[in-house]
Structures are given as C-alpha cells and as structure tokens.
C-alpha cells in the first residue's frame, strides 16, 4: 500500500466513521479531554494499522475493531478511571439550571445516558455503544469476537442494568 492509497483509505474511514467512533469514545470515557485523547489515539492506530488491512472484513468492521481494541488498552498506565468525576460536575451543573432550553435538555439527557453507561463494566460499555450505533448482534460479534447469541444475552443484561439506573435518575 503506497502513501496515496493509505491516505485515500484513511480519509474514507475518517469521513464515514469519525462521528461513530467519537461516540464510542464517549460511551467508554466521560471526560471531554479524555474522550478527545482516546479519539486521537484511535485515529493514530487506524493510520498506523492501515497497511495491515487485508479486506477480510468490511472497512467499517475493521475500523470499529481498531476503536474497541484501542479503548481496551487505553489508560493502561494510569490508575483506574474515576467514574464519579463527570457525575460530580456536568450533571449537577446542568440540573441546577432553572429553565433549561432545548440545548440544555439534550445535554441533560445525554449526561443521564452517559452516566448510566458509566455504571457498566468496560466490556459492556463498548458493547452497548456499538448497539446504540445501530449495529446488529452479528456485527458486534464480528467486532468483539464473541458469539452473536452471547452478545444478545449480554445486551439483555445491559439493558436491564441501564433501565434500573435510568429509573433512579428519573425519580430524583
């Protein structure tokens, strides 16, 4: 693969999957700076791994795999990610707003969803992010490498957990 081909393929991934990958980062990590940082690292790995792409799977599946695998090793040198940080800042600030406009409402809803996802295990966070992106169980199975029916089992469990957490926020 020459430089021009590499650039062309990268631009294709970048244009088509940039937003989706960014949302996966958001589902996995909760601080804006860290989300941006992980996103950059994923893009760097996509760029560096471009030559290894043999076309065995679709470019989208491949890009998602790179994203998920990068997330798995992200922050390996730091201590466990502090789940509470976002809970303590963004969410509280937004709920303090007396008369929220549409933008604020969207932000609050996103924060509630993000917070609920943050209560999940790392693996579950990645799986639910892919599901929320609209991927099928088969597609998730192809990315993560677990059987499709097991993805289904996991999603059911994750939904239950999400539902419980969201219910708590609704009651607040």
């Amino acid at each position: 693969m020459n430089v021009q081909q590499k650039e062309k393929l990268f631009l294709e991934v970048y244009t088509d999957y940039r937003l989706r990958i960014y949302r996966i980062c958001y589902g996995y990590i909760y601080e804006k700076e860290q989300v941006d940082d992980l996103f950059q690292e994923i893009m760097l790995n996509i760029w560096n791994s471009m030559e290894k792409f043999k076309g065995d799977s679709s470019i989208g599946t491949w890009a998602y795999r790179v994203a998920v695998n990068t997330a798995l090793l992200y922050n390996r040198k730091t201590k466990q990610y502090k789940k509470v940080s976002r809970e303590a800042t963004e969410y509280n600030t937004l709920t303090d707003v007396g008369c929220p406009d549409d933008h604020k409402l969207k932000e609050t809803r996103l924060n509630q969803l993000g917070l609920s996802i943050s209560k999940l295990d790392k693996q579950d966070r990645l799986i639910i992010s892919l599901i929320l992106e609209g991927l099928t169980y088969d597609q998730v199975s192809e990315i993560v490498g677990i059987k499709a029916n097991y993805v289904g089992v996991k999603v059911t469990r994750i939904k239950k957990q999400l539902y419980e957490t969201l219910k708590k926020y609704d009651n607040e």
Binding site: R23, T108, R109, Q112, L113, L132, G134, Y163, L166, D170
Partner: peptide, 23 residues
C-alpha cells in the same frame, strides 16, 4: 428530566436517538 418516559425496557431506539446527539 424523565428520560425513561419514552423508553420501554425492550427497546433501545429512543436511547439510540439520544446517543446520536453526542457532539
């Protein structure tokens, strides 16, 4: 903010829509 009012336990479409709003 009632996030659950538009969501039943068996569907994630509503959450998917919110998910799509991530800037």
């Amino acid at each position: 903010m009632k996030l659950l009012k538009n969501m039943t336990m068996n569907e994630l479409d509503y959450l998917g829509k919110i998910w799509g709003e991530i800037p």
